[in-house]
């Protein structure tokens, strides 16, 4: 279980003080899939970085399976929003995916299998030997996703991982993430600004207000576990849920403006 309790984060640097996160509390059950949506600049990246142990919160705590997160916990992977900068430009695509596995001491044959599998899964089976900068933005993003998948994490945090890909690839990757989630039983926290995507993917959608950030609504997505782009998106319940999320976000926006 991932617990965020009374989390607050204030950035203070160069004479500018930004309250990025006001007061956030929520829980993510082990093995569940939670989507987080919120307006740009509301602190979603900040929240993920606190959960990953990369950023010390100003107040409150993050706990993972009972132990407080003070540094990056074992078995946690992140797909960064700045996917391009998160790849090593001096390593080929396959070596980028491979490096975390080497660090984890996985043996060579197994590493090879995992790397091949992950790259195939994101549709980059023929890009092993390319350097990241030889790829398009969307392809780089998929390399970053492949790296996270190959790592076989227990907790996976993804920060707008499909922002740079076209609609068709996006649909494929959404299904890939869902199948990986089901196969690995990983705890998944997925940040997106796409309402449809959040409803399609998650078991829960947590909506955030604009800063100082709070939880605006925590919505359970009671769609069947077997989802598919056509039938799920055509389901009246899907339309209803996405309407709920949409209305909530509009409300948060108006409140943000009124303040």
């Amino acid at each position: 279980m991932l617990t965020v309790d009374g989390l607050g984060k204030v950035y203070a640097s160069h004479g500018r003080r930004v309250e990025a996160i006001g007061d956030l509390s929520f829980e993510v059950e082990t093995g569940s899939f939670v989507c987080i949506v919120g307006p740009s600049g509301c602190g979603k990246t900040t929240l993920l970085r606190c959960c990953a142990g990369l950023l010390p919160p100003t107040s409150g705590t993050v706990t993972l399976s009972g132990s407080p997160v003070t540094g990056p916990p074992e078995g946690l992977a992140v797909v960064f929003q700045e996917y391009g900068r998160s790849l090593f430009p001096w390593l080929r695509v396959a070596d980028n995916v491979d490096l975390p596995l080497r660090a984890a001491g996985v043996d060579r044959a197994e590493r090879r299998r995992l790397v091949d599998e992950a790259l195939d899964a994101v549709g980059l089976g023929d890009a092993h030997r390319a350097y990241p900068w030889q790829l398009s933005g969307g392809m780089q993003q998929r390399v970053a996703i492949a790296r996270a998948i190959a790592y076989q994490p227990r907790v996976l945090l993804m920060d707008e991982p499909f922002a740079a890909v076209d609609a068709q690839t996006r649909a494929d990757l959404e299904d890939l993430v869902r199948s990986v989630w089901q196969r690995l039983g990983v705890t998944l926290v997925f940040v997106t600004h796409d309402i449809d995507e959040a409803v399609y993917l998650g078991q829960r959608v947590i909506m955030l207000t604009s800063s100082p950030t709070r939880v605006a609504e925590d919505l359970t997505i009671d769609l069947p576990d077997e989802r598919d782009q056509l039938t799920t998106r055509g389901d009246p319940r899907f339309t209803e849920l996405r309407g709920r999320v949409y209305a909530q976000i509009q409300k948060a926006k108006l409140e943000g403006k009124a303040r």
Binding site: G71, L76, F88, L99, P100, A103
Partner: peptide, 16 residues
């Protein structure tokens, strides 16, 4: 900084 964070999360440490 992002590469540094990448190394921290994926526990790429020491000689590597």
């Amino acid at each position: 900084g992002v590469l540094e964070d990448t190394c921290r999360t994926y526990r790429i440490r020491g000689t590597l």
